[in-house]
């Protein structure tokens, strides 16, 4: 199975995880061949669909495609049996920003915040996630291929940010967890991203074993991410995860792709 994996910086963990699986020599993965295409930040916005190919509109994006894919400067969609989209600006931070000012039914009461009907919150967030690069890229692909498309969000930030919130951008993790709302926020994240992607792709939530306190990633999956991914070794990258995280994702991706394939066949 040839897999086309498209994403932003969060692709790195998936690549490191794949390298680990390959080294382990598990025969279950022998028939899977992933090809990675990535561009940092919102670089994937700088592409267009042209004659069955995703073509970068900027030279530097094409160069990054070539570096990661082994020389291909464009994505020939017909070459692949399935597609995996990674990150592309979908994260729970969007919900945490809303949670600063608003609540919805089921969350802990806070008179300083405006209460929304849960249906209003769901509608609003689904629309916002629908405007992200992840969903837009899924829509672009779905317009051109019938193969399965599955999507991953950016991982929850590493659990250590909760304790060091004074020195880091504080998205309100600690407040949400302390109020007992983390599980509900994670549930809202999952349902609204799933809904936003639904016309085009399936959402694969973060593996449960990697999640801590509902909305954070357990420390072992962030260990050495600064050294392995960011390259600074300072241990200050809370947003990106390591190869162990990537390795935990692959079984879920395979399951989702198989499920999508069987649905399509039926």
């Amino acid at each position: 199975m040839r897999l086309c994996v498209i994403g932003n910086s969060h692709l790195a963990a998936l690549k490191l995880g794949w390298d680990a699986l390959s080294r382990a020599g598990d025969p279950a993965w022998a028939k899977v061949t992933p090809v990675f295409f990535g561009a940092p930040r919102d670089g994937m916005r700088q592409v267009r669909l042209d004659d069955g190919c995703i073509v970068p509109a900027r030279k530097d994006i094409g160069e990054q495609f070539a570096l990661m894919s082994g020389g291909q400067t464009r994505i020939r969609l017909g070459d692949y049996d399935g597609f995996v989209l990674v990150g592309l600006n979908v994260s729970i931070k969007r919900i945490l920003r809303l949670y600063r000012t608003h609540l919805w039914y089921g969350l802990a009461d806070d008179p300083r915040k405006t209460l929304l009907h849960s249906g209003v919150a769901t509608d609003f967030l689904t629309e916002r996630y629908g405007s992200t690069l992840l969903v837009q890229t899924a829509a672009l692909l779905r317009g051109a291929v019938s193969a399965p498309i599955v999507a991953l969000a950016e991982p929850f930030w590493a659990s250590w940010v909760r304790a060091e919130r004074d020195a880091k951008p504080d998205y309100g993790w600690d407040k949400a967890i302390s109020a007992g709302d983390a599980a509900a926020l994670a549930g809202m994240f999952r349902s609204t991203v799933t809904a936003a992607l639904a016309p085009h792709a399936s959402f694969v939530p973060q593996p449960p074993q990697t999640v801590e306190d509902g909305i954070l990633t357990a420390a072992p999956y962030n260990k050495d991410a600064s050294r392995l991914i960011s390259g600074d070794g300072g241990g200050t990258d809370a947003a990106h995860m390591n190869g162990a995280f990537g390795a935990a994702l692959w079984p879920l991706l395979r399951q989702a792709l198989q499920s999508e394939t069987s649905v399509a066949a039926a």
């Binding site: 790195a12 990054q64 951008p169």
Partner: peptide, 18 residues
């Protein structure tokens, strides 16, 4: 005053991994 921000690096990490 804000101190060292958590790194949200996106430029280089892909190149490092690949």
């Amino acid at each position: 005053r804000a101190g060292p921000d958590a790194r949200v690096v996106c430029e280089d990490e892909l190149l490092e991994a690949f």
